[in-house]
Simulated assay, not measured.
Amino acid sequence: MIKLIVGTKGSGKTKAMIDMINDSVKTSKGNVVVVEKGMKLTYEVPNAARLIDLDEYKIAGGEMLYGFVAGLLASNYDITDLYIDGILKVLDHDINRLGVVLDEIAAAAGNSIKVTVTVSADEAALPHDVKKYL
């Protein structure tokens, strides 16, 4: 199950996601994982959540992101919540590739893992295959 937080730069997407992460850490009976490009959330995310920097693993592009997420989910069956901040940065701002990547991540996550993704774009600019996740 994927939920998108969509808005232009500076619209409060990351702040909303941090609030959701804090709630998940308090209520989850499993692991909460946060994936981001760059370590901007180091002091914002509680220690109970696992924060992963995609730059540390040289993740770039949709295929690498999907492979990384699939590996995370395959290696840890206790993940209940997965947060991906700034997915378009990883996709080199290729909004047309976004729908394919979200479909792949949704298939890997199934119905048992809540995936929340921030997308820095105007909602009207989203491709049709992405809007189903709003």
Rank of each mutant, 00 (worst) to 15 (best):
L54F: 02
M1Q: 10
V130H: 10
H93Q: 09
V119S: 08
K114D: 15
T8F: 04
V25M: 06
L72H: 06
H128G: 07
V35R: 09
A125H: 01
G38A: 09
D55R: 15
Y57D: 11
M1Y: 07
A125M: 10
K89L: 10
N111A: 08
G7Q: 06
I113T: 07
T27Y: 14
I2R: 04
G30M: 03
L65E: 01
V32I: 13
K9L: 09
V25F: 11
L73C: 05
V100F: 12
M20H: 06
D92T: 05
D94P: 06
Y83W: 07
T27I: 13
V130F: 06
S28R: 05
L98K: 01
I5S: 01
D23N: 15
A106C: 08
A74V: 00
V119E: 06
N22W: 13
D55C: 10
K58E: 13
D129F: 04
G71I: 03
N47K: 15
V69E: 00
A109K: 14
L54V: 08
I2V: 10
V45K: 03
D129N: 15
D85I: 07
D23W: 03
V6Y: 04
T116A: 07
V33F: 13
I5C: 02
T8A: 13
V69A: 01
G67F: 05
L134H: 11
V117M: 10
V32E: 05
S75P: 00
D81T: 02
D55I: 08
S75L: 07
A16C: 05
M17D: 03
I59M: 09
K132W: 03
D92Q: 10
E63K: 14
P46L: 10
V35M: 13
D55S: 14
Y133R: 02
Y83K: 05
S120A: 11
G38T: 08
L102T: 09
M64W: 00
K29Y: 09
L4Q: 02
A124G: 00
M20P: 03
L126P: 05
K15F: 12
N96Y: 11
D122W: 08
N96D: 11
L41Q: 10
I84A: 15
F68Q: 11
I105S: 04
L4K: 00
S75D: 12
L88G: 08
N31G: 01
V100K: 13
A124E: 12
A49S: 11
D78R: 14
E63M: 10
G99N: 02
K131L: 12
P46T: 09
V35N: 11
S11Q: 06
H128I: 12
G62A: 02
V35D: 10
A107V: 13
G10V: 01
A108Q: 07
E104Q: 15
K132L: 09
K15H: 13
V6N: 05
L102M: 12
I79D: 02
A106D: 15
Y83L: 08
L91Q: 04
E36F: 04
I5H: 00
K58W: 02
D122Q: 08
S120T: 09
E44M: 11
T116L: 12
L82E: 01
K3F: 01
A124L: 11
T80E: 05
N47P: 08
E63I: 12
M39N: 13
K132F: 00
D129W: 03
Y66E: 07
K58N: 11
V34R: 01
D78K: 14
T42K: 14
E44V: 02
A124H: 10
T118A: 06
M64R: 05
T42H: 04
Y83N: 06
